[in-house]
Nucleic acid binder design. Structure first.
Ligand SMILES: [Mg+2]
Length: 368
DNA sequence: CGACTTAAACATC
DNA sequence: GATGTTTAAGTCG
């Protein structure tokens, strides 16, 4: 608080500081050595072009080194000890760097906890780079309103937001501004529906929700640890006819999945035969225990076969239409009214692949 | 002033 | 005691 108070005297400082050693604590006793100087920049050393990565960087590397992109705290510790030379020869126990790791996990909103379904285990940590901290409003160069922006209160508010993102905190517009475009594996972006003129001249559009063949989607649920499987009927557009009101049609559809069968024939799609085996392209789905039920059709041969009254299917549709990753979709307030054309950058369409598939199917290409 | 590290109080399991 | 959250204090560019 008081910058001239006793707290400012390093000799009496009883609490946090990045100051190491007694050099400053004993005034005049000894000068600051080079070793002290380097120590002050932490275990990881000074960050520069050559080098050192921040704790945040390392945690991201650790988590991404696993197939599931998730790690418990203790697993992160282990990864650090193996992969970070400065830490590997540190003695066991509650080291300061572990404190720093925990601090970073909590502090940064890109690190999100997900419950660990195993009994007595600590949470999994995941990375979602779509979750971005709020930056202070940029001050206008010529503006006199200097202190209006970036007041103490506003800084505190940002900090509160940035450390912890609770579900559904993003407005649709906010999310689409920052999220990375994402296309659900097994689906192809249709080149036909140009929903927005992007600055470059490439062809972009919305993804179609209709897989070309009957497929099973295996959704490992990270909250329940129950593999969810969804059975998709093949749905074909009647002609190659393109409905001019596609976006509106699909919007209504994904809000009310039960009405899909009536609307599906007016919906365009593009076959994507490259990723028909969606079993290898898992995505995560929020299914609660309440709406997960044993599928009695398969109960005998596989008692662990669950279905969830199509909420998972709807969820998949939401992901497809939003064009963002599932864990990011979790953060948006109004899922039903996402406008994919507000994405900061367009979803990419593999035009060559689309043409090849159409040709293979013996269909004419009437676009482009 | 923001990005970063380290320390530590505190809560929760 | 391990796991998280938060505040505070420092350095550096
Ligand atoms: Mg966090």
């Amino acid at each position: 608080m008081e910058s001239n108070g006793i707290q400012d005297n390093a000799a009496f400082r009883n609490r946090s500081s990045t100051w190491h050693g007694k050099v400053k604590l004993e005034p005049g006793l000894q000068p600051v050595t080079e070793e002290d100087r380097s120590k002050r920049h932490g275990l990881l050393g000074r960050r520069n072009i050559y080098g050192q990565q921040s704790y945040s960087d390392l945690i991201i590397k650790a988590i991404n080194s696993t197939p599931d992109k998730k790690m418990t705290l203790s697993q992160i510790y282990e990864w650090m000890m193996v992969n970070v030379p400065v830490l590997s020869n540190k003695p066991e126990g509650m080291a300061s760097w572990k404190n720093s790791v925990r601090h970073n996990l909590s502090l940064h909103c890109k690190f999100v906890k997900v419950p660990n379904p195993s009994a007595g285990k600590s949470s999994f940590w995941t990375v979602n780079l779509d979750v971005k901290p709020i930056k202070p409003a940029r001050r206008r160069t010529g503006s006199l309103e200097t202190n209006k922006f970036n007041s103490k209160q506003q800084r505190a508010k940002r900090a509160a937001h940035n450390t912890k993102i609770s579900p559904a905190v993003y407005s649709n517009a906010q999310l689409m501004e920052t999220a990375e475009p994402y296309v659900l594996p097994g689906y192809q972006v249709s080149p036909v529906f140009r929903t927005r003129t992007w600055s470059d001249e490439s062809t972009y559009s919305q993804p179609s929700p209709i897989p070309s063949e009957e497929v099973l989607v295996n959704i490992p649920n990270q909250r329940l640890d129950i593999p969810m499987q969804y059975h998709y009927q093949p749905l074909y557009s009647s002609s190659g006819q393109i409905s001019p009101d596609y976006p509106e049609t699909m919007r209504r559809y994904w809000t009310k999945p039960s009405a899909m069968s009536q609307r599906i024939h007016s919906s365009p799609y593009v076959r994507d035969e490259r990723n028909l085996d969606l079993l290898s392209n898992n995505f995560q789905c929020n299914v609660t225990l309440e709406n997960a039920q044993i599928d009695d059709r398969n109960a005998e041969e596989n008692p662990n076969f669950y279905h969830d009254n199509d909420t998972g299917y709807q969820y998949a549709m939401n992901i497809i239409h939003a064009g963002v990753r599932p864990e990011t979709l979790d953060l948006v307030a109004d899922v039903d009214n996402i406008q994919v054309d507000l994405l900061k950058s367009p979803l990419e369409c593999n035009v060559d692949e689309v043409i090849n598939q159409e040709l293979r199917m013996g269909e004419t290409i009437d676009f482009v």
